[in-house]
Simulated assay, not measured.
Amino acid sequence: MDSETLLSRITDYANRPNPYPLYAELREAGPVVRQADGSYLVGTYHHIGALLHDPRMSADERVRTTPPPPEKIRDPSFLRLDDPEHHRLRTLAMRPFGPPHTPGRVNAMRGEIARITTELLEALPTDRQIDIVDDFAYPLPVTVICRLLGVPREDEPRFRVWADALVAAADVRPDEDTIAQDEVGRRAGNEMSQYLLDLAEQRRGEPTDDMLSAFVNEPDRSLRLTPEELTATATLLLIAGHETTVNLITNGVLTLLRHPEQLDLLRREPHLLPQAVEELLRYEPPVHMRERTPLADIEVAGTTIPAGTSVVLALASGNRDPKQFHEPDRFDPTRRDVEHLSFGSGIHLCFGGPLARIEADTALGALLPRLGAARLVQDPPPYRQNAMLRGPRHLPVQL
């Protein structure tokens, strides 16, 4: 089939349960394949890694030759900015989160994460099927990120609607008219920004031990976020802090139940679990692609990509590249040196990665004793619409 339709086929919902044959086709046709809409698709490990580190590749969608429509443009978070502005905002966001200014923040949450996990497991019924997503994989990281940021957990029904709209608007959809969805995303972004700003203002002068308090009560004026920067940063952290981890935990359970021999191995040797989490991140990553834009004409493997063009980096394809990983389509929890692309690389390496690893390790470790007799009720399960953040919408399991 024509390689120029690869992105359309990868993002087609019909292929959501198993896009990996299409990624293999991409690597065979690539490493760089021009698409019918004028974008470029990159699917090999080393070329993706090189482009993630290339300072000529911009994360700012506003630099494209055909920029997004006005209804899609919002105040960008540092995820969608380039240095030096990206570095400034990311550094300010990191101050209350991790080293060097708050080195113990994430590690200190281990006990809290374990307690939340135990509470969720104790509430699970044993006499009927459960939904791993709604009953476990979603409430765990949502509760964690709410505690970390200082967002009331009881407000989850409100911000879930906003988060769903924003994630949908950020998806890669080459064949769809997205005007209406982008407008919904714009309104959701405005409402979530006002909500988070109001929460932060409530902490001004009366700080509690959370990141919103730290942002709004920073004593050094040169280190303060503007209201627009604060809301863009907090929105990113709230959404990214749970969306990807939900996929990681759910994909992990699905993969283990599909591979009973490997599940039995981890039940016998739970010390392998951190290694298995890295393999899960490679094998069934929560994030499948990222978009970048060249600031100048660049040449990749003999193909010239014009400045201002959308370039889709298929991270999930790179994670299955046989030139990097031996037998990449095999799930092997004992695999060593799993240098996957699932948290990105370069200046935009996900700084929430350490927290996601702790959550996945804790969640899957607590579930292991219960999964021995568990079975999938539906395989493949129903998937989320989103192609970029790929994971089951529901995962019915009989414990």
Rank of each mutant, 00 (worst) to 15 (best):
E201K: 14
L6W: 03
A363K: 05
G150H: 04
A374W: 01
Q129E: 15
R335H: 05
A374R: 01
I10P: 04
V277G: 02
G185E: 04
P270F: 08
T233F: 03
I179L: 13
T255D: 06
G30Y: 07
R375C: 07
L248P: 08
L238D: 10
L26E: 09
V312Y: 13
L257C: 11
H53A: 14
D60A: 12
R187Q: 15
E112S: 14
D321N: 08
G111E: 06
R221I: 11
G365F: 03
V33L: 09
V142D: 05
S77E: 08
P306K: 10
D210T: 08
R290W: 02
R158V: 11
L367P: 00
P294C: 12
D155F: 04
A93T: 02
D337F: 00
R62Q: 11
L355G: 09
P55E: 09
L121W: 01
G302H: 01
P141V: 09
P19N: 05
A36R: 15
L52E: 06
T244S: 15
R336Q: 04
A169Y: 03
D264E: 15
C350N: 09
L149R: 04
H340C: 02
V216C: 08
L225F: 13
H53D: 14
R90V: 02
P70V: 08
A169Q: 11
P31R: 11
D12A: 10
L6S: 03
S342W: 00
E71Q: 14
I48F: 01
N15A: 11
